[in-house]
Design a protein around this nucleic acid. Sequence first.
DNA 1: TTGTAAGCGTTATCAG
DNA 2: CTGATAACGCTTACAA
Lengths: 379, 379
Amino acid sequence: MNKDNPGEPDGGGSRRATLKDVAVAVGVHISTVSRALNPETRHLITPQIVDKIAEASKQLGYQPNTAAYSLRTNRTRTIGVVVPDITNSIFPPMIRGVEDALAPLGYSTLVVNTDGQPEREAAILDTLVARGIDGLVVASVERENGAIRTLASRGTAIITVNRRMDDPAIASVTNDEAEGVRHMLNHLVALGHRNIATIAGNQNLSTGQRRYDAFLRHAVDMGLDVGPSRVGFASTFNEADGERCMEELMARGGDFTAILCANDRLAIGAIMALKRRGLSCPTDISVTGFNDMAMVDRIDPPLTTVRIQQYRVGNAAAELLLERMTKRSELHRPQHLVLPVELVVRGSTAPPAQNSGIVALNNGLKSERRRQKISAVKA
Amino acid sequence: MNKDNPGEPDGGGSRRATLKDVAVAVGVHISTVSRALNPETRHLITPQIVDKIAEASKQLGYQPNTAAYSLRTNRTRTIGVVVPDITNSIFPPMIRGVEDALAPLGYSTLVVNTDGQPEREAAILDTLVARGIDGLVVASVERENGAIRTLASRGTAIITVNRRMDDPAIASVTNDEAEGVRHMLNHLVALGHRNIATIAGNQNLSTGQRRYDAFLRHAVDMGLDVGPSRVGFASTFNEADGERCMEELMARGGDFTAILCANDRLAIGAIMALKRRGLSCPTDISVTGFNDMAMVDRIDPPLTTVRIQQYRVGNAAAELLLERMTKRSELHRPQHLVLPVELVVRGSTAPPAQNSGIVALNNGLKSERRRQKISAVKA
DNA sequence: TTGTAAGCGTTATCAG
DNA sequence: CTGATAACGCTTACAA
């Protein structure tokens, strides 16, 4: 009964007010209301009428119907944010960076998880496109990704964050991986380390590849010896893989006093592997991370790492995306924003002990207790 | 030029196929296509035609237009998930729990942050409703919340998670707070603690209130003394407030050997406060948390806490919500699901030392070094 | 079993 | 400056 009277103080299941309701309330035509309510076209309407319409629409609690708007304009004011896993704590700050930039402009954000599976990602991109999203922020992208390229070439506004594709046509906001690695190597060398190993990330990801490239280049520049016995490759950026790589490196001889890990989770895994073998970080081996994810300042030992601007990455990406969604397509010259990073020194790095490192231990130069540790390693 | 030919192998900005395109391709009417593509109505159509339509639609890459569907049916297949802050690591698992249950059924999830501000929450709920979401999962709710009640009474499907409202009409999925607190008190008492303090959470939140209530009831049941000097109230569930409360309790005399904190973040803050005063956990004071959020197993000391089923809370809420969104409203008897919790004992709890606790220290029963610590506390 | 046609709430084009 | 009208793509009585 209240069904046709959205003006009524709301008692229950009353219909939502539409343009027509406002129009009859004011006594003008529906299109006049539409124009009066739209800032772009408001100037076409007599100010007094605009006021009356504004009041009536507020009075009736008018809210534009998004579906009708989208159907008509082909725009949804919705963007998709694709992450590997929202549960990985480096992503939520990026997501908030995006939302905080876009929500005030009336955009909503659809967040989806790929779990790092390209097929899943493809399916997810499909549903996002089917929903008619206006733009896409992708944190899960591999260096090569056909689906993204296709979408981009069809004109979808896309920015990748944190990672980037090899294809320079796909815009991105990333971190200065090379500088981060360089700072970290400098730090380790300054502490006195000369024998430095690395656990590299997945080389199909720009983060993994660029951090490893930088490690090689800068290590050589600094006159350090690198070689296969000092490199482990993780396929996934997680603790389990970090642990596995660390164990492999130790099994291979472990002639190093410090290890640079491609991200924090690998570093945490590496430290776990050390602990499990009765070795300690940083006393026996210094371990470093990358990202400065939440809580790594509170773990034992507090992690020395490279701080990336997680929130700003998302925030900046949103701005770029906005430009692509609103401005004319001619202006879309490829853009790649690289944000500066910062070295954060904590407790997981220290000068190498007199005869530290696993080889030194193997050589029996230290106490009997230490020798025992190493037999555990070899076991 | 390709504009009217969505069948063309896609060269660029070609239009998306619509029902009409499929219809002309097959040579049937658009409504036949609609029926054939909808599982509910497929049986009305001749099987051969169904096949032809299925093929043609796949061929043309037909994707239903969500806006048109929504406009027509008044359903969006979108649900809103409202959290205080996605950056707080207990929420992402809940969100994934929701998404994993709903995505396979074609629902998308709009995630929004309130930052714990009720006004912001109200505004956010407005935009969500304006977007026509089919249902709402709210993790940010306070014990009383007018906006939620209004929405619920208007028929919006709503489930609160993690927290619940006092109003039993609003369905919820929560954790067994009382059992968690009881387990924890048991654990502390078993270790030998008799003087146990608490840092309670915000009493406007069901989590804060119920955990504190349980603390009082069970402490008394166990014959423990409680009193104002052993209770601190946090207004926010974060580290800073935990630190502040811990300092206040120490300043008030601190005649306790263990402190039960209403969540992990408060516990982390409490431990920081101890460290800052030169005291140590668990040697001087045992500290416990609640939630078992990510990484608290890796901090120093690893936190003894109560594990809540973060993912399952979200997952179960999604199921309940689904029921409310699809089934008839008569069946909507209020539902409150309470999930079991689990005690997780780690390094932040230990038996009280011979003369531990702050008062003991104050009384000068221990070493000179300790006496110095305490003067720092009083300073 | 299939076709017809109305209508969801907007915006945009075209008159007036 | 304002009104009339078509159209966006889909679902769903109602006819046939």
